[in-house]
């Protein structure tokens, strides 16, 4: 039993360092995807609320598609699809050699697109919660539309959207396990390789579970703190009415 645990250690023949690197990749792809997915989600949300029918239709279609297709399938389509497209572009430009798609970028784009589809729903809900008077008051104070959005709407938006976006983050964190299929050396990839080398699947996949669980628990704790922080102006008010 002890010698088996040594497989997870940092000594000779131990997979500890590789596992740590895998955990690093998992975290980096999740963190790299987050801003991209959330920003795109906000754009899609604004599209859904737009007065332009075509924009609205496009935004709704976009979310329907990427919420309905399995993430694994989206990942394959984007990984192979971009690869083929860029390869054609490469040849058309007459560049030597061949183009190969970095799996990290493909994973980031695929997860980001899915995240944007899901987070756009959260953004729409949050945008709806902000009363029209806020924008009107901002306009009355002479703020431009962009200023009103940045200075008045956005700070309120974040507070309302945070619980939903936090959920999206937790889902994203677990979805990163899929990028192992496009050979990105994340936790799942490393443990799969360790399993092939050592024939100890229970040990390694169990360790992977614990790493993911650790990330989830830390995220849940952090999100709780963040929510408490964004609500601190409202806590006293809630307390007074209770």
């Amino acid at each position: 039993m002890i010698e088996k645990l040594a497989l997870l250690g940092f000594g000779d023949g131990g997979w500890g360092l590789a596992l740590l690197q895998g955990a690093g990749i998992t975290i980096s792809i999740a963190l790299a995807t987050l801003p991209f997915g959330l920003a795109l989600g906000l754009v899609v949300a604004l599209g859904k609320r737009s007065e332009n029918v075509v924009l609205r239709w496009l935004a709704t279609g976009y979310t329907t598609v990427f919420r309905g297709v399995p993430e694994l399938l989206t990942l394959y389509i984007i990984y192979f699809g971009i690869q083929i497209l860029l390869q054609r572009l490469w040849e058309w430009l007459g560049l030597p050699g061949s183009f190969s798609m970095p799996p990290f970028v493909a994973g980031m784009v695929a997860l980001g697109v899915v995240l944007s589809a899901f987070s756009s729903e959260v953004w729409v809900g949050a945008l709806n919660s902000i009363q029209k008077g806020q924008r009107e008051a901002a306009a009355a104070l002479g703020l431009s539309k962009a200023q009103a959005f940045r200075l008045v709407v956005m700070p309120q938006l974040v507070r309302v959207a945070l619980p939903g976006l936090g959920n999206n983050w937790m889902v994203l964190l677990k979805e990163t396990s899929l990028v192992s299929v496009i050979t990105l050396p994340d936790i799942m990839f490393i443990t799969t390789r360790a399993n092939v080398a050592t024939k100890e699947p229970f040990l390694f996949f169990g360790a992977a579970m614990l790493i993911y669980l650790f990330f989830s628990l830390v995220s849940a704790w952090g999100l709780g703190r963040l929510e408490a922080r964004t609500n601190r102006g409202y806590a006293a008010f809630g307390g007074a009415t209770r």
């Binding site: 899929l178 799942m188 799969t192 399993n195 229970f202 992977a208």
Partner: peptide, 23 residues
């Protein structure tokens, strides 16, 4: 619930299929 909601389904599936298959 914390355990199964906090870990990826893919990892759980590998743990069951490969991991339990070990025994």
């Amino acid at each position: 619930t914390t355990f199964f909601r906090g870990t990826p389904l893919l990892c759980q599936l590998f743990l069951v299929y490969y991991g339990l298959g070990q025994f």
